[in-house]
Design a protein around this nucleic acid. Structure first.
Lengths: 199, 199, 199, 199
DNA sequence: GATGAATGAGCTTTCATTCAT
DNA sequence: CATGAATGAAAGCTCATTCAT
């Protein structure tokens, strides 16, 4: 009597992952507006129609991917903040991000995607919610910086603005890597964070 | 009795400038894909058809604007490099850029446009040529950094990579400003450049 | 050990009936174009693929249902015509139809379906054959009317045209009921048939 | 300096009329769902895109056409009601409608369209407003019938329900004409209205 | 030069139909 | 026999570009 439920579920999950990987790559490379569902389908090796079995629309797919990124990064920071000293925690986060960006790993694409979503001034309906997630990420990092300031590790100043500056730099690096490819070697975590120690 | 050639040329030049200003504003605000020729025409107060008398296509207009930006920035750096000490020159450049970004001035739009063009990996035919211009800008800044290193103002390291890092940060800041608006206060030139003095 | 042929046939017949009932309900409610095979499959509690074991296409299913309706109505009229006086027979038919339409019964769905099929001028391949069936229904009613004229029950006039007018009214009522719902109370058989007695 | 405004307006109006005529014919023939914008464009001898200069969507075009019909019919009835006796007014209206249906004139298409809109159970956003217009038409006719009852011209009974029955018949006739073409001769106004005199 | 009506390619999305299991 | 994942044609709609005036 046809496939078992497990077989079906496995197929479905595999397809969904193919779509997510392809979507991630395409959106990171060309942005939301310039990525067509056909692009994604071709990259995933499936038909366009199949995408709609897993995501209701192009926007939902994009939002899903961005949301996942943000949540993951926020969680990482929250986890590391609890584990070690603020300074060491941020070094670890930064190092991980830079390594990913340098190696063009999956997470790096996620990061570019985040940058893109920040820039996407298009009327994505879920954008407001996404912004909340972004702000959560920024606040989570701000909290870490604040703790570092209390412990004398970081220089004084508005922690939220410092957090924003930190992410500006990461974003800029991810963009530049995307643009320059192998001609660009991402800087060290130390260079990225030096502004936090400054005086 | 027809207009004299000068009158015609003047009108033509005025129209062209209106188009460029409108295009700049639109592209900076909404990006390439989401800006329609109608948007630009309306912003410029002319008809869509007229744009095509001055620019062969949407892509050409975009490329033209980016090109101008790059060239202008390159020239600025070259000029300042000759005028004063490398350190003071870069502070001046940085300060100008940050001020513009903070104030959302015309030049700031140019800069966002540059960021956008870096991210626009679409098959813009002129893109290769644009990359050459970008590289020129980066090299010009690298030269300035190198001179600074020679004079002991900047820390040692590959001047070109340092230049790329410098522009990464500027880009990231411009993006963040675009995204956060008034909630983001751009950092000081000192904070942006501190990595160059590090150690 | 496989099922016996009878068992299989029975299952098959049961499935087919479920599909027909579901198709009838869906088509009557939403029309041909807006009813999807998935709708029908869900209403029937089976998979979409299974429908294709019983009907070659959506159009064939639709055509099959309409065909059945027409045939059934034709048979009803033929039967009643033989049983009683033309006038009483038609009153009985009309009364049954109106009652069904008013109560939104199964047969009423059949009738709406007929109306819909008349309106569906799409290139349904079997449409020509359907028209033949319709014509048979109209002719059967015409025969009844003719008999009624011979017996002085109905007013004179082309029996076929009178038959067509009769069905026009029934169709219009079914449509109006569909549109107005409870706000519409179907007229009496007498009101529907009064034009036949007129002078 | 290009075309004058009058020229432009004239062109625009001509195009709009071509679209309306083509839309009317297509919708009347095949219904909303089965009529494609390509169908309409081809019937109008223009490109698909041009339709969108005049109507924001397929739905708006449809709604516009239906709305116009309803309004026109409502006005006609209101006008005639004021001019003459209810009975004569309704005969005149009916006669006009039947004549149009018989001749397949423009108004007849409008009428079919009305029927279609009544049957269109699709979630047309403007449908609710359309229903209001329909109801207005029905009420206007009901008022006329009521006046007729007061003057002893029509038989007693709920004027609104009688009005609905009246339009049921008209609709049924229009449908049947559409289906049967030349094989159907529309009945006389007398036959259509006889139910109002009954008893 | 200047206009904006008109075109048509290309996009997102739906859904009848097929087919591996 | 039965399933539902997968396909792909076709729909509604947008917009860069052209061209008659």
């Amino acid at each position: 009597m046809a496939r078992t439920k497990e077989q079906t579920d496995q197929m479905s999950a595999a397809t969904r992952e193919k779509i997510e990987a392809a979507g991630l790559a395409c959106f990171a490379q060309k942005g939301f507006a310039l990525t067509s569902m056909k692009d994604i389908a071709e990259a995933a090796g499936i038909s366009t129609g199949l995408i709609y079995r897993h995501f209701a629309s192009k926007q939902e797919l994009f939002a899903r991917l961005v949301d996942d990124t943000m949540t993951e990064m926020t969680e990482t920071i929250r986890f590391l903040d609890a584990e070690s000293s603020p300074s060491r925690a941020l070094v670890q986060v930064t190092d991980g991000l830079l390594r990913d960006i340098q190696a063009n790993e999956r997470i790096s694409q996620y990061f570019i995607l985040m940058t893109r979503s920040l820039l996407a001034l298009e009327p994505l309906p879920q954008m407001e919610e996404l912004q909340k997630i972004d702000l959560l990420l920024f606040r989570q990092a701000a909290r870490l910086i604040e703790r570092g300031q209390e412990q004398g590790e970081f220089k004084p100043g508005d922690p939220y603005q410092l957090s924003l500056f930190y992410f500006s730099i990461i974003q800029g690096i991810a963009d530049m890597k995307l643009f320059m490819g192998d001609r660009y070697i991402v800087p060290s975590a130390e260079d990225v964070m030096v502004f936090l120690y400054n005086k």
